[in-house]
């Protein structure tokens, strides 16, 4: 019995010594990377910039809102969860308007009609900008595979969270906005 436990102790020491050496060596050769220096539509990375035309005819870029917390909501008028979450987005936009919260509603115009989208905007009394992604290039850049998809971007331009699907609840929006406001 003593022999077994002695062998086990030796094996444990050997495994732990090898493990410690592996930790030490790999930390030198495989240093963790800072994702913030890379532009990608994924949590932890810097959000890709884009320029789109608003429903009012102005050109808006994501870069215009540098230093402000931004929510980008990808939507279409035929998408029922998108329609259902519009009032929650508007409600939270109004609540945090004095804290410079920006909401950009990027309409998948390549799969939608501007008339139907504007009708929905009117019905839900949206006051944040609606942007037309006419060729779907921004949807592609953000790898949007399902609507709605919502990106939460911090003041530093880094994506803090992505919510795929909906309808998103006002409480979830508030908790994410609070996190954006508290980020650097």
């Amino acid at each position: 019995m003593d022999k077994i436990t002695r062998h086990w102790t030796l094996l444990t020491i050997l495994i732990l010594a090898l493990g410690a050496a592996w930790m030490w060596v790999t930390a030198r050769y495989f240093t963790p990377q800072d994702a913030r220096s890379v532009i990608q539509a994924h949590t932890g990375f810097t959000a890709p910039n884009f320029t789109l035309t608003t429903a009012a005819g102005d050109a808006l870029s994501l870069a215009d809102f540098s230093g402000k917390p931004v929510i980008i909501n990808f939507w279409a008028s035929w998408c029922l969860p998108c329609r259902a979450e519009m009032p929650a987005l508007q409600q939270v936009f109004s609540e945090y308007a004095d804290q410079q919260l920006v909401i950009l509603a990027v309409n998948a115009a390549h799969q939608d009609t501007t008339e139907a989208a504007l009708k929905l905007a009117e019905e839900t009394a949206i006051t944040f900008p609606i942007l037309w992604d006419l060729d779907g290039s921004v949807n592609d850049a953000y790898q949007v595979n399902a609507l709605p998809t919502t990106f939460f971007i911090g003041k530093d331009g880094v994506i803090q969270d992505v919510v795929i699907g909906g309808p998103i609840s006002p409480a979830l929006l508030r908790t994410r906005v609070e996190k954006l406001l508290n980020s650097n």
């Binding site: 409600q91 609840s169 006002p170 409480a171 979830l172 609070e178």
Partner: peptide
Amino acid sequence: HWQAFQGSPLSI
């Protein structure tokens, strides 16, 4: 996050 649910308790 109770404050986030105050205005919309149905979010629970």
